[in-house]
Every structure is written in structure tokens, then in C-alpha cells.
């Protein structure tokens, strides 16, 4: 264990450099640069609001805030897990030539997405104020899902990263799985009816749905569903332990498969 701690300290700069590289290169050579972090969710939310709000007639008040809150969390999850899944292969040139603790690659991919995600929350603040959704004390609870989504995404990312080294097809399968996760996370529809039906479990078993709906509850000053929060927290811990365990067990074999 001690070896790992001292190893981490030695490679702290590398972790930071990798995170920085992700952020820097993401927007390099685009004219608006980092502003896209804010503009992209804003424009996408506008499209979703027009399609699902105006055209399909979901005329709930503050529908834009509702969509944006869900979409921001989901797009972090999808970006982070995809990044972590591809991290080993993307850095194969480095892995083949120098020894560096390998978990740094998926970890840095998740962290860089998390930083971009945190920056993009500024959009949510602006949109909330625009639609007159003002903060209450309840908003403090928003920190819980905002925090929990990090270990959850990291755990899923580590599992995917390990599996996809040996089984490249995972990248395509995960694309499909992400679509399923998106629809069962109730990002652009109101899940009240489903939650009352016999299919409620489909949503409730999705930890991401639990996080997103509690995040929205905090934003809209609704009561927090602590059962769902506890479930999501437990899922995060389990997934993260599993992810690191799998990664640790298999990491010496990576080099033979990349």
C-alpha cells in the first residue's frame, strides 16, 4: 500500500499534466475555445427544449432547466466513461515504452471530463436565473449527486477500460448501452407516469437516474429521495472497488494486447 502512496506522490505531476492536456487539446484550434464548454450544452438544451417542449407539447414550466440539469450530468457520465474506456489504447505508445502507473490514464480522462463538467455548471446557473429558478437551502443537497457521480463514473470507466483492452467490441457495445442509460435516466421527459407504473424499477435501478433526479430535486427545491441517494452511493462504492480491482488484476497483461 505504501508503495502505491509514494508512487502516487511521484506521479502527481503526471496526473495533473494529463488532465491539463485533455482540457487544453479539447478546444485547441477552435475559435471559441473553452467557451464551447458553456455554449455546447446551452445550444443542445435549446434544441431539446424546442423538440420535446414546444413540438411534442411538454409544457412544464422551467422545462429548459429540467433538461439542462439532466443533460449536464449525463454528458459528463458518457464523456468520462468513454474517455476512460479508450484511455489505455489511446496511450499505448507511452505504455509500451516507459513505466508509468497505468491507472493514471483512465483516472486522468475522468478527471479532465469532471473539470469541464464543473465549468459547464455555470450555464445551469445562468439558465436558472433566466427562468427565475432561484436557489434555496435545498440546493446544498446538490453537492451530493455532483460528488457521487465522480466515483461512479470512475468505477464504470475502470471496468470498461480493463474489458476493452481484451475485448475491443466493448467500445461499440458501450455506445448502445449508453443509449439505454440515457433513455432510462429521464433526461428529456417527465418520468412521473413511468414511476407509477410497473416499469418503475427500470428507472430506479439506474444509479444515474437516481443521481439526476435528486440533483433536480435540489435545484427545484423538491424533497430529496434519500432511498435513491443511498442506492446511488452504494452503487458508486461497489462499482469503484470492482473497477479498481479488475484493473489492478489485469494491468500487467495490457501490454500484450495493445
Amino acid at each position: 500500500m505504501n508503495r502505491y502512496v509514494s508512487g502516487f506522490c511521484q506521479y502527481r505531476l503526471l496526473l495533473w499534466e494529463l488532465v491539463k492536456k485533455g482540457i487544453k487539446l479539447k478546444y485547441r484550434r477552435s475559435y471559441l475555445g473553452i467557451i464551447w464548454t458553456l455554449l455546447e450544452p446551452l445550444l443542445q438544451t435549446a434544441v431539446l427544449t424546442i423538440v420535446f417542449g414546444t413540438l411534442l407539447g411538454t409544457r412544464t414550466k422551467n422545462f429548459a432547466v429540467y433538461i439542462l440539469a439532466g443533460r449536464l450530468l449525463y454528458s459528463f457520465f458518457s464523456g468520462a466513461t468513454n474517455g476512460a474506456m479508450r484511455a489505455i489504447r489511446a496511450n499505448s505508445a507511452m505504455i509500451k515504452k516507459v513505466y508509468v502507473p497505468k491507472y493514471l490514464y483512465p483516472l486522468s480522462a475522468v478527471l479532465f471530463n469532471y473539470i469541464i463538467f464543473l465549468i459547464s455548471l455555470i450555464v445551469l446557473v445562468i439558465v436558472c436565473l433566466f427562468f427565475k429558478v432561484y436557489p434555496t437551502w435545498n440546493l446544498l443537497y446538490a453537492f451530493l449527486p455532483l460528488f457521487l457521480i465522480l466515483p461512479f463514473s470512475l468505477g464504470v470507466g475502470m471496468i470498461l477500460g480493463t474489458v476493452s483492452v481484451f475485448f475491443r467490441d466493448m467500445e461499440y457495445l458501450w455506445g448502445v448501452a449508453l443509449m439505454l442509460i440515457m433513455y432510462t435516466s429521464a433526461i428529456f421527459y417527465d418520468p412521473t407516469n413511468i414511476l407509477k407504473s410497473e416499469y418503475a424499477l427500470v428507472l430506479k435501478l439506474n444509479p444515474l437516474f437516481c443521481l439526476i433526479s435528486n440533483f433536480r430535486a435540489a435545484v427545484f427545491n423538491d424533497p430529496i429521495n434519500w432511498k435513491m441517494m443511498a442506492y446511488a452511493a452504494a452503487a458508486s462504492v461497489v462499482v469503484m472497488i470492482l473497477g479498481f480491482y479488475m484493473f489492478y488484476k489485469k494491468q500487467d497483461k495490457f501490454i500484450l494486447h495493445i
Binding site: Q10, Y11, L13, L14, W16, E17, L18, K21, K24, L25, R28, A93, M94, K96, K97, V98, V100
Partner: peptide, 25 residues
């Protein structure tokens, strides 16, 4: 083994000094 294994082609020389330096610990 191979010099500059940690280099990133999109990075400038300056940025690569810090990146590759970090790779070497």
C-alpha cells in the same frame, strides 16, 4: 528506450518538456 515516447504532437516544445518530464517522474 525511445526518446520522446511521452510526447504529444499537438503540444508545443515547451509544453512537451513538462509533459515528458512528468512521464519520467
Amino acid at each position: 528506450l525511445e526518446l520522446g515516447a511521452g510526447f504529444d504532437p499537438q503540444y508545443t516544445g515547451r509544453e512537451n518538456i513538462f509533459l515528458y518530464g512528468a512521464v519520467l517522474g
